Computed example of a mutant assay.
Amino acid sequence: MSADTDQRGNDDRQRITLTEEDDGRWTAHDDSRGLTALGDSRRDALDALDAVIDAVEGDGGRPPTDEELREAGIDPEENRRRGEGEGEGELPDVLK
């Protein structure tokens, strides 16, 4: 039994596919997780894929700051009230 196969015979190796696109950018795809990222170079694509994996599986995410919410057209105070069931009116386009 190889080191890449568990006791049940399942292959636990991870495969990442790098593809050069027609526009010269690169796509990195993690076949085992089904996650994909794009970059201007192979290294950029792999770095972006690492960030996606970290955000999905690890602690890579964080709540947006009030400033980031405002830049996206969201009033942070109204957003908090809405989350508590107090807000009224239409959602911002970015939340639809």
Rank of each mutant, 00 (worst) to 15 (best):
A3N: 09
T5P: 00
T5L: 02
D6W: 03
R8L: 12
D12F: 09
R13Q: 13
R15V: 12
T19F: 00
E20C: 14
E21G: 13
D22H: 14
R25D: 10
R25E: 12
H29C: 03
D30C: 11
S32M: 13
G34H: 06
G34V: 03
L35Y: 06
A37W: 02
L38P: 00
L38D: 04
D40G: 11
D40K: 13
S41P: 04
R43D: 15
R43T: 15
R43E: 15
R43L: 12
A45S: 08
A45G: 06
L46I: 10
A48K: 00
D50Y: 01
V52C: 02
V52P: 00
I53F: 02
D54S: 07
D54M: 05
A55S: 11
V56C: 06
V56M: 07
G60C: 03
P64M: 07
T65N: 02
E67L: 11
E67M: 09
E67Y: 10
E68S: 06
E68W: 06
L69G: 08
E71D: 14
A72M: 12
G73T: 09
P76E: 01
P76S: 05
E77S: 14
R80T: 15
R80H: 14
R80W: 11
R81Q: 12
R81E: 14
R81S: 12
R82E: 08
R82H: 13
G83D: 11
E84D: 13
E84R: 10
E86Y: 08
E86N: 08
P92L: 11
V94Y: 09
V94A: 13
L95W: 07
L95Y: 09
K96Q: 15
